[in-house]
Design a protein around this nucleic acid. Structure first.
Length: 603
DNA sequence: CAAAGAATAT
DNA sequence: AATATTCTTT
């Protein structure tokens, strides 16, 4: 690669040349892509897809890596342990992630990572990475040892039996397999084990004999907790899995609620109506509890409207008037078979389903949405859409640049993740994925593609190649989520569907947007951005210091620093060839502070 | 005692 | 934060 980009290379101070960077990303395409970009700056890049291998390489010290850039999502180990090992060796770590998640970013930074990049990463973003090599090593802000929290940063991915001893050596389990619990049951990768990181920096795979859901309150040590949890037939192999309330499930739930009315909406009845196998009354009760809380929170203490909504719907049902009069312009179909939203054949057009499973959203910020993320540096907002993993439809991503969406055609499927992961964040980002309920996300490193026309956007149905660009968010916000289930159209003919397990086709019509969003407004392409910015407000604030209206501040600010350093490399590097990275340091410190500050914000 | 509601554990 | 489990009330 010597022949290429001499100019780019010259953009960096000499001491940044030939910097040895170890790049870790299980995502091969991403790995190659970023590696090639880094090489354009004349960095010497070594790549590996396995974090564990990366650690081996570092431990073996074949090369003197000055910087490690790693996808925070590590299928083969816990990224937190990874970070700690490197931190001990005083190698700066920059984490990358395709799912922007403030929590994860904060966590990583707090734990000592020196930077966090959201994919897609631009050439420009990488330009300044060398600076981190010269920053002082920070000590992790807090070291909260919580047993069983080790996987948190891994967005639902668990360690697969990699051990790291104190020296940072990576020890693989004999067969590289899955550890088994005492009873010989295989630990489910999804839920059956937890990753413990003790103070010796040893990561141990442990299996919970009781399964993922063996959560018990401390007993007053009455009768020895008999092995009540050994299942009835004596085999411990059965893995209880944590039920995930997918959009589909929740849909059935809300439909049942609607059909029953709030008076009859008791767990048992709901369960019966939902007719979903493998779900218990207690689970429904639990969900109902959450549901009610959220409805209440959204509506304030006022239950009247809730009631009237229900009775209104009830009336409709009784009078056989389906669907009830429409009040919104944004309608999409829901295909129960493929569990996707959108017009037949064009699935996953709406990200409403995501909002179904997002966590409670602060009332002030309805527009928050897990699938709407913003690149800290580019200011791009990226929308992603979920799709059920049973379908072949890749998730779709839309990139908004300067007020316009770009459809990223070059979509690549990556790992699946469980609820809470990414979707939360993608959902964000929490542990314990369940195979049957996992989603798939896609990411793209190719910012390009077609713009979406306002005309296309105006379509009440969102077709495969368009994106709704309404004045208001096209996502169903929390309020809409709860109310729509109560007031939304309900096909009488579908009532029985909840008790028929067989094939169901696209018949249900969902109302996704409340009446306030009149069709007239919805087609105004000039106004929509407000919401999307709001939706990412958290990230915005995070990225750009409040005062500036320009969201790209951080990048330019960083750039300024870089330029400063470049302009006078001599002076900058007064100590040997080490530049004075004070400014960069301060910047990073600021960034970190900002992120951490936000974390304490109640919001 | 069963079912639902609330509280709490993780 | 979401869900499972346990405690409390109906």
């Amino acid at each position: 690669m010597e022949h290429m980009s001499r100019t780019e290379t010259n953009g960096l101070p000499s001491f940044a040349h030939d910097l040895q960077i170890l790049l870790v990303d299980h995502d091969t395409l991403s790995l190659m892509c970023i590696a090639s970009m880094l090489e354009q700056y004349s960095f010497k890049v070594t790549t590996t897809e396995m974090a564990s291998v990366a650690l081996s390489m570092i431990t073996e010290q074949k090369d003197d890596y000055k910087l490690v850039m790693a996808n925070i999502n590590m299928p083969d180990m816990d990224s937190l342990s990874f970070l700690r090992v490197l931190h001990k060796k005083e190698i700066p770590v920059i984490f990358m992630s395709s799912e922007m998640n403030v929590y994860v970013a904060k966590k990583a930074l707090a734990e000592g990572a020196c930077f966090f990049l959201e994919k897609p990463i631009s050439l420009e973003d990488l330009k300044s990475m060398w600076q981190h090599v010269y920053r002082k090593i920070r000590t992790p802000r807090k070291y909260k040892h919580k047993p069983n929290c080790g996987t948190k940063m891994n967005s639902g991915k668990d360690c697969q039996g990699i051990k790291i001893n104190e020296a940072g050596d990576v020890l693989r389990p004999p067969l590289g397999g899955v550890k088994r619990n005492e009873a010989g049951g295989e630990c489910s990768l999804a839920t059956g084990h937890a990753l413990d990181i003790d103070k010796q920096n040893t990561c141990t795979l442990t299996c919970k004999a009781q399964g993922a859901s063996g959560i018990k309150r401390p007993t007053d040590d009455k009768e020895e907790q008999e092995q009540v949890n050994r299942d009835s037939n004596g085999t411990t192999g059965d893995k209880k899995h944590r039920t995930v309330w997918t959009p589909e499930l929740h849909l059935k739930f809300t439909a049942a609620l609607s059909a029953l009315g709030d008076l009859k909406s008791r767990p048992k009845a709901i369960l019966k109506m939902m007719n979903v196998p493998n779900i218990t009354v207690r689970q429904v009760a639990s969900h109902l509890q959450k549901y009610k809380n959220q409805v209440q929170r959204i509506r304030g203490t006022d239950t009247t409207s809730l009631r009237s909504s229900l009775s209104r719907l009830s009336n409709c049902i009784n009078r056989n008037e389906f669907p009830p009069a429409k009040q919104s312009s944004l309608v999409c179909q829901y295909d129960q078979r493929t569990s996707s939203f959108g017009v037949q054949g064009n699935t996953a057009q709406l990200d409403a389903p995501n909002s179904l499973i997002t966590s409670p959203i602060p009332v002030a910020g309805f527009n928050n949405h897990d699938y709407r993320r913003q690149n800290l540096y580019s200011g791009h907002t990226i929308l992603s859409h979920y799709t059920n993993h049973h379908t072949n439809n890749p998730s779709e991503f839309y990139l908004r640049t300067q007020g316009q969406f770009q459809n990223l055609n070059q979509i690549r499927e990556t790992s699946s993740f469980g609820y809470g992961a990414g979707m939360n964040e993608i959902m964000n980002q929490q542990p314990l994925g369940i195979e049957e309920n996992s989603f798939r996300t896609s990411e793209s490193h190719f910012p390009s593609m077609n713009y979406i026309t306002p005309e296309a956007a105006a379509s009440p149905y969102i077709s495969g190649n368009t994106f709704q660009v309404p004045n208001e968010p096209s996502v169903m916000n929390q309020e809409q989520y709860y109310t729509s289930s109560l007031t939304g159209p309900f096909d009488s003919q579908n009532q029985n569907q909840f008790s028929t397990e067989g094939a169901r086709l696209t018949t249900e019509v969902l109302e996704l947007v409340p009446e306030q969003i009149a069709s007239g407004n919805a087609t105004n392409p000039n106004k929509f951005p407000a919401d999307f910015n709001d939706g990412s407000q958290k990230l915005d604030t995070t990225a750009g210091e409040a005062s500036s209206p320009n969201e790209n501040q951080p990048l330019s600010e960083y750039d300024e620093l870089l330029k400063l350093l470049e302009e006078d490399p001599q002076e900058a590097s007064c100590v040997g060839s080490v530049p004075n990275a004070g400014d960069a340091d301060r910047y990073c410190e600021w960034l970190r502070e900002t992120l951490l500050e936000n974390s304490t914000d109640p919001l």
